[in-house]
Amino acid sequence: MSREAGGRGTITLLQAGRAGAAVAVVAYHAAIATRDFAEALPAAAFALFERGTFGVDFFFVLSGFIIVHAHADDSRGAGPARAYAAKRLSRIYLPYLPVSLAMIALYAGLPGISGASRDWSLTTSLTLLPTGSPPALAAAWTLVHEMMFYALFLVSYFVRGFPWIVAAWVGAILAGIGLGLQTAYAAPSLWSVLAPINAEFVAGMGAALAVRAFSPARSPALAWPCLAAGLAGVAAFFALAVDPAGPLRMLFGVAVASAVAGGAWLERAGRLRAPPALVLLGDASYAIYLVHSPVISLAARIAGRYEPFRAWPACLALCIGLGVASGLLYHLAFERPALAWLRRRLPRRAATVGPSGPSAGH
């Protein structure tokens, strides 16, 4: 779960946001599966659930926020860099690989199971390296982008002018937009390092630096305006039909970053705290993200064959419920105990590094 630098406790509001983002993504994919295998949703209802794709943006912003929040005070050099890399790689791959291997086996044994032709990469599926083709687990495209960001942050352990490197990255992203570069999200290639959505990691880093710059005593004066402005921006994106594949999407990340900073300030000042149930769901958000898509696809296929569940409200509710429940079960039965086992075997420095982003509860 998200922890403040120096072990000052869990930022529960960020965990609650992670839970909400995970459920939004599940609802979006449930709407697609319901439409494809049961009954089409009314246009207005589908457009609403389609906004769930922006849950990914919350995770990207939060990754940037927590990486800075947890690691800004790390010592520089090879030792801390190895600890950081060990924690990040284990946190991503340990829960991911069993699901990925299951999807690889499924597509290898039943290549037509998806109902459509899917060109997926074995290399990307196993390593999360960008090859120009998506991984077998379709939702894992976000992890490829996250690995790019983790690799970039690793440079900070060796280079003093790291902020200039980040600024250059943002400049290159903006230049790529101006040049019309094809930086597809779902089929990441090396060019995907210039995808506009990557700027959301930087927005999260900026939010973390702002939170670190002001003490809890001064935070409330900034918190409510930041939170209100961020939520207003999020609401505007939900109200407007912004193209999720377009460059304006990164502005959604700026709005989320403002809300994240405001929420973090309020919790530091003791003004707000999330309930334990949402914190648990936030802890499980990575597991939910990993397993929900195949579970939803199977559930919608089965529901579409039986009259009581064929109607879109019933099928949608079933898919969302099973998607969330299966992820929570995977978290409790495998992810959490497996990571606890691994932490006991990692060097102490690596074991104390806090989790972040989609791979830290989502």
Rank of each mutant, 00 (worst) to 15 (best):
A241Y: 12
A269P: 00
V256W: 06
L251S: 04
L240D: 15
I197Q: 10
S258C: 13
G233T: 04
L266S: 02
L194R: 00
A207Y: 09
N198V: 14
L248N: 00
L181N: 04
I197D: 11
A199C: 12
A184T: 07
C226L: 14
F237H: 08
P225D: 00
G233S: 05
P188A: 04
A245V: 07
A186K: 04
R268S: 06
A187I: 08
A229L: 08
A255L: 10
V260Q: 01
A229S: 07
G233Q: 03
A236D: 10
A223P: 02
A186D: 06
L240R: 13
A261G: 11
M250D: 01
L227F: 08
Q182E: 14
W191C: 01
F252L: 06
L248S: 05
Q182P: 09
I197F: 12
A232M: 08
A199L: 14
S215K: 14
W224A: 09
A203F: 14
G204P: 09
G180I: 05
S215Y: 04
A203T: 09
Q182R: 13
A255S: 13
L222Y: 06
R212S: 03
R212C: 07
G206C: 05
A199Y: 15
A259G: 12
S219W: 04
A213D: 08
A264D: 05
A261M: 14
G180C: 12
P244W: 14
G230D: 04
A236N: 03
R218V: 06
L209R: 04
L209F: 15
L266Y: 01
S192Y: 00
Y185N: 05
V193A: 03
A269Y: 06
L179I: 08
M250F: 07
E267H: 09
A235V: 08
L251H: 01
P220Q: 09
A236W: 15
S189E: 01
L194Y: 02
A245L: 15
G262M: 00
L179E: 13
M205L: 14
M205S: 13
G180E: 13
V211S: 04
F237R: 03
M205G: 11
P216V: 04
R212G: 04
R249T: 09
L181I: 12
A257T: 07
I197M: 12
A259V: 15
L251K: 02
